[in-house]
């Protein structure tokens, strides 16, 4: 199954939304059929997963959830969503239920809203990632170097265990020189204000890497007029089509992590 998440707004003037669609994007490539399920939001308190049910989402139904719809401060809680067969309350581990089985991922539209516009991308947190020991290599050209532009980095991490553990993340340039490092946490939607790092981002590519943690890397930029951009980077497997794609992921990760 896929989990979804609500991004914490990077600035006070922004809001966060998500469209969750309980339908297959492509019936021919999907083993799962749309079913009436219970939509929950959930977060970790460090020792347990706390679930709250939002509604029952019927076959092919959609819901748009705004951050203000949840009685939670996104600065203190990283909020994820799941569609479950049974109502959930508390759990000591997350279950990867057999839903969303598809060659073409069932995704949600993950959005940031400003007064006059939106920026979004089609995203999900694959259930297959929650029991893995993750690492990260994200090569991004999406950091914009201009005095009117602010850049932020999200790293979304979700594990089956609710434990909140710290891990280290480094930013490298293409010469493998570490130009900054910071802490991230498991089961959090980590938000890093890149403007606070006092780096002159004047290169075309930066590598965000971690040896002991990972997740979905997302890059958000906003200018003084509230133009916005939101996009994730591809996992290393996406530079290769067919064959042994994970071999090339291992080669890339071992290079940048060494």
């Amino acid at each position: 199954m896929n989990f979804f998440f609500l991004l914490k707004p990077a600035l006070k003037s922004l809001d966060s939304e998500i469209d969750i669609v309980n339908a297959s994007p492509s019936p021919i490539f999907s083993l799962s059929k749309s079913k009436k399920l219970i939509l929950h939001y959930f977060y970790s308190n460090g020792s347990e997963w706390i679930f709250n049910d939002i509604c029952s989402l019927g076959v092919n139904e959609t819901i748009t959830i705004k951050s203000r719809d949840l009685n939670l401060d996104l600065n203190n809680h990283s909020v994820f969503f799941s569609l479950n067969k049974k109502k959930q309350n508390k759990a000591i581990s997350l279950k990867d239920e057999d839903y969303h089985m598809s060659k073409i991922a069932w995704r949600a539209n993950i959005k940031i809203k400003s007064k006059n516009s939106y920026t979004s991308y089609q995203g999900e947190y694959p259930g297959g990632m929650i029991d893995k020991n993750l690492t990260l290599v994200s090569c991004s050209p999406m950091i914009q170097n201009h005095s009117t532009i602010k850049n932020f980095f999200y790293l979304v991490n979700l594990n089956s265990s609710p434990e909140i553990k710290e891990f280290n993340l480094e930013i490298l340039n293409s010469d493998k020189k570490v130009i900054s490092n910071f802490k991230c946490y498991t089961n959090k939607i980590n938000l890093i204000d890149l403007n606070n790092l006092k780096i002159n981002f004047n290169s075309e590519m930066y590598i965000f890497t971690s040896k002991n943690g990972g997740g979905i890397p997302i890059y958000f930029s906003i200018d003084n007029s509230e133009r916005m951009s939101l996009e994730h980077t591809h996992p290393p497997t996406e530079y290769v089509l067919h064959g042994n794609r994970f071999l090339f992921q291992r080669l890339k990760k071992s290079f940048w992590k060494s």
């Binding site: 492509s26 021919i28 539209n109």
Partner: peptide, 9 residues
């Protein structure tokens, strides 16, 4: 004919 349903509003 195949169907594709973009998952957004």
């Amino acid at each position: 004919i195949n169907e594709y349903f973009p998952q957004l509003t």
